[in-house]
Amino acid sequence: MERKQLLLDAAHFRHATKAFDPDQKISEEDFSFLLEIARLSPSSIGLEPWKFVVVQNEAIRKELSTYSSGAVKQLETASHFVIILARNDARYDSAYAKHMMTNVKDMPEETFEQHIIPAYRTFQDVNINILDGDRTLFDWASKQTYIALGNMMSAAAGIGIDSCPIEGFHYEKVTSYLQQKGILKQDDPYDVSVMVAFGYRASEPKYPKVRQSQQEIIEWIE
């Protein structure tokens, strides 16, 4: 019961923090913990199709804010700001998939070629039908990054750190800017998925947390 209450308290504590206290910084130990939570997050077929870019450079943050209307205050005041990238090449038959299965997960190459490729081809091409275009494949990978995003924010709330997930940015302009700065290279197998800011709230939320009731959103089939 104590563990359950700690998790519920963290869920009630968490809110989308628009402005952080710029004088309060997250310790290196605590932020390393949040990055480790992200690293350990689950992903579909275990491909981990993500990369976490921690932007601490003030000049880059300021320039990013011109293309990120939903992140102006966060970029200015957050202790730590993360751009989460999603892979655009996470196909069942890609060199990356082979690397993940044979090098990272230590799967025999023969097993990957004979069993995993056919199974994952059916999964991606037939079951969820994401191989029709580059955008559908990227969107699938992007969905995986949101698992890591949610885990990071929940873990942050659990240790008293605030956060704000951010989709309010111009995708093409942010991508172009990151390429100009060499953060993203033209041939990188990544595209921008979502952003998230971390820090300590400058003030308490003006409004209480409000959600739909369980009765409105949950249906039991017995």
Rank of each mutant, 00 (worst) to 15 (best):
T136P: 01
D188S: 14
V72L: 11
W50K: 05
I166Q: 00
S69E: 07
T175A: 06
D188E: 07
I84R: 04
K181R: 15
L47D: 11
D134A: 15
A95S: 12
S27I: 03
R3G: 09
S43A: 10
Y67S: 08
V82S: 01
T66L: 14
A141R: 00
I128R: 03
E216I: 08
D134P: 13
L184D: 07
Q215F: 04
A148P: 03
S154V: 09
D132C: 02
V55S: 08
H15P: 06
K181F: 12
L178S: 01
Q214Y: 04
A119S: 11
Q114A: 13
E2K: 10
P108R: 07
T66A: 15
I116K: 01
S154T: 15
K98H: 13
K62D: 11
K98I: 05
F169Y: 15
Q212T: 09
A157F: 15
R39F: 10
S43Y: 06
A78P: 07
F198Q: 06
P22H: 04
L47Y: 13
L6M: 12
E109L: 10
I130A: 00
D9L: 04
M101E: 11
Q56S: 13
I166T: 01
Y96M: 09
H12S: 02
M107E: 03
L149E: 01
S193G: 13
P108N: 12
F123M: 13
K73I: 05
F33T: 02
V194C: 14
S69F: 14
S163C: 12
S79P: 05
Q124N: 09
S163M: 08
N103M: 12
E110V: 13
L75Y: 06
K98V: 02
A202L: 14
Y200W: 04
P208F: 15
Q186Y: 00
M107W: 00
M153S: 00
R135I: 11
A90P: 00
E204F: 04
V53R: 02
Q114F: 04
S43W: 05
A78C: 14
K4H: 06
E28W: 09
D9T: 09
S142P: 01
D132K: 13
W140S: 02
I116V: 14
E219C: 06
Q56W: 00
Q212W: 06
I116T: 04
F198N: 02
F20I: 07
A59Y: 00
D21T: 12
G133L: 07
L137M: 13
R39P: 03
K25P: 01
A157H: 12
Q74T: 03
A119C: 01
R39N: 11
T145W: 05
L85P: 08
K18F: 14
S43N: 12
K185A: 05
K73D: 14
T17A: 11
Y146M: 08
G199V: 05
P205K: 13
P22M: 11
R211W: 03
F33H: 12
V196K: 04
E216W: 07
D132G: 12
M152T: 02
R39E: 08
G168L: 12
N88M: 02
K25S: 07
Y200A: 08
S32H: 14
E58A: 15
I117T: 09
D132H: 09
A157N: 14
T175L: 05
N103A: 14
V53S: 03
E2G: 01
